[in-house]
Design a protein around this nucleic acid. Structure first.
Length: 289
DNA sequence: CATCGATGTTTAA
DNA sequence: TAAACCTCGATGC
């Protein structure tokens, strides 16, 4: 589930579990050996999410992680060390840990299983990172370069409010592009944190046709879309999964992966097609403009 | 046991 | 536009 909500949950959890005390960093798989050596024994100062990017700030460097399609962190430790056992792409649940401490007072970690790019360890637990598309140590100018390419992230607005500046930046980005709204929402320079599921579900709830040119959407509709995405992402952070559909069924989404079935709002058959290498889902019956 | 597919991005053609 | 990256649960035989 690595859309924006996942990374914000991850930042919160890493902050709670690792920030403020020296950590141990290794790369059991070996592909991050040099970076791990730079981070090892440092004290992480702050974890931050921006869109689908995770940054853990040390001094003066920054650990940069992007989970991509199938990256994930798994957490293990004493009870209370971490709330979620795994954050990122789906991972099987593991059995409860039998805590055992080493002579130095640190929890004895289990041997890494599979391809663990990075293991970060605190005194009472650890986390393993598998399958990220990005795992790198950045110097301050490199960090600046990464965030300069990112558009506004709805989850960086103050809690329960809309930041007019961020929303305005989104509107400005839409108006300056001659691409469809479906393409624009996937462009992390337009809005950071939206992926294929939030794209489908937000356009559906706003009744926006995916092929509408982004620069032809009225200010009112664009502001409503920003508000809708904000609400959906915040629900994702709270629940840990993307849920746009409320109700008694286990079904979470209005249209994502429900092509060929009846739209729950208008009864028309939900459609799907390929757009820029990703599946696009929409309802031709009620997403009309 | 083999193959497929996925919430994503970068690079090459 | 296509392929590569890289992991693993789900699916199929």
């Amino acid at each position: 589930m690595p859309e924006g909500h996942t990374l914000h949950r991850l930042a919160v959890q890493i902050d709670a579990a690792f920030v403020g005390a020296p950590w141990r960093v290794s790369s059991p798989q070996g592909r991050f050996a040099a970076g791990a050596q730079l981070l090892d024994a440092q004290t992480p100062r702050r974890a931050e999410a921006w869109g689908k990017h995770l940054f853990v700030h040390l001094d003066p460097q920054t650990w940069h992680v992007h989970l991509g399609l199938y990256g994930a962190f798994t957490f293990r430790g004493v009870p209370g060390f971490a709330t979620a056992a795994s954050i990122g792409a789906p991972r099987s649940r593991t059995a409860a840990l039998e805590p055992e401490y080493q002579e130095d007072g640190w929890l004895l970690p289990e041997p890494p299983r599979g391809a663990v790019r990075a293991r970060i360890q605190a005194q009472h637990g650890w986390a393993d990172l598998r399958g990220p598309v990005t795992c790198a140590v950045l110097e301050p100018p490199e960090y600046q370069a990464v965030i300069q390419r990112l558009g506004p992230d709805p989850l960086r607005q103050p809690a329960e409010t809309i930041d007019p500046q961020a929303r305005e930046a989104f509107l400005e980005n839409l108006s300056r592009r001659r691409i469809s709204i479906a393409a624009a929402l996937m462009d992390q320079a337009v809005i950071a944190g939206v992926g294929n599921i939030y794209r489908a579900e937000s356009l559906f709830e706003e009744r926006l046709a995916p092929d509408t040119p982004s620069n032809q959407i009225s200010q009112e509709r664009a502001e409503a879309l920003w508000g809708r995405i904000t609400e959906q992402l915040r629900t994702g952070v709270t629940e840990g999964v993307i849920r746009t559909l409320r109700g008694k069924s286990a079904r979470r989404h209005w249209i994502y992966k429900h092509q060929g079935t009846e739209c729950l709002r208008c009864g028309e058959t939900i459609a799907a097609r390929e757009l820029a290498g990703r599946r696009l889902f929409w309802c031709p019956g009620c997403q009309l403009d």
